[in-house]
Amino acid sequence: MKAAVIVFPGSNCDRDVAVALEASMGAKPLMVWHRDTELPQVDLIAVPGGFSYGDYLRCGAMAAHSPIMREVKARAEAGVRVLGICNGFQVLTEAGLLPGVLMRNSGLKFICRDVHLRVEDSETDFCRQYQCGEVVRFPIAHAEGNFFADDETFRAIEGNGQVAFRYCTPDGGFDPAANPNGSLGNVAGIYNEKRNVLGLMPHPERLAEDLLGGSDGKRMFDSLVEALS
């Protein structure tokens, strides 16, 4: 398996994703600068978290128009797997690769803590090592993670089974207190219709080894290696 991590000015999780990928792949991913216009042949493209372009204008809005994103969009349309984490999720929605938008958290504050997520669809290359309905723990660190879509779009997302993860209680239930940012339908991550693009606000790479306090996130990277190697 070959992977590339896109690096924007302001990214702060690009190296974290690279470390997690290397631990699962056994090889370093390529680090691709946002001004590049070409991508080598890879099986996975990771769009990392951080504050691309300082979050000026709107989170992910400027990064979505970086030169490299034209190639990312073309590869996604050709079926290459694309993983967007936190700011990367915002970039993918701004680029039109995923539906909906990420707005300010309902409490209007930056939130940094672990959350529980229920796996809604495990039959994809990203989540094949999870079980549908399983509860996992990932960290979040964002101020604009409130997922929203208009009624028609959200009905389509739900109807197509595009929800990947939902915020939940430790026992898998849904409670307003378990939804850290007010996301519609407790959505924490979604797929595109073809299931080759995943965007999620929580950070699997920040809980990908026991030394970090848990390894629930590692199975996402292991899933990709299993599927794409």
Rank of each mutant, 00 (worst) to 15 (best):
F126G: 04
E38A: 14
G107L: 11
M25L: 15
G96V: 12
G100Y: 09
C59D: 05
D16R: 06
L92Y: 06
Y191N: 05
G161C: 05
K218E: 10
V197C: 02
G26K: 12
M25K: 03
A3T: 03
A208C: 15
L30T: 01
I85F: 04
D151T: 15
S52N: 07
P40I: 11
A149T: 13
A64R: 06
D55A: 11
V47F: 04
R104V: 13
E94K: 13
F221D: 06
E226S: 13
P139V: 07
Q41F: 10
D14A: 12
L102H: 04
C132H: 14
V72S: 05
W33M: 09
D16E: 15
L228G: 04
A63P: 08
R15G: 10
F174M: 12
G26H: 12
I68K: 05
H65C: 09
P40E: 07
R166V: 11
L211T: 13
S66R: 05
C13F: 10
V136Q: 10
L44P: 02
K28T: 12
G213D: 05
K109T: 13
H142D: 05
K28C: 10
L92A: 09
G173S: 13
Y130L: 10
D114A: 11
R113H: 13
M62Q: 11
V187S: 01
D150G: 08
A188K: 08
V163I: 15
A78P: 00
A3G: 08
V163L: 11
A208P: 02
S122V: 03
R58F: 06
L97K: 08
L212P: 00
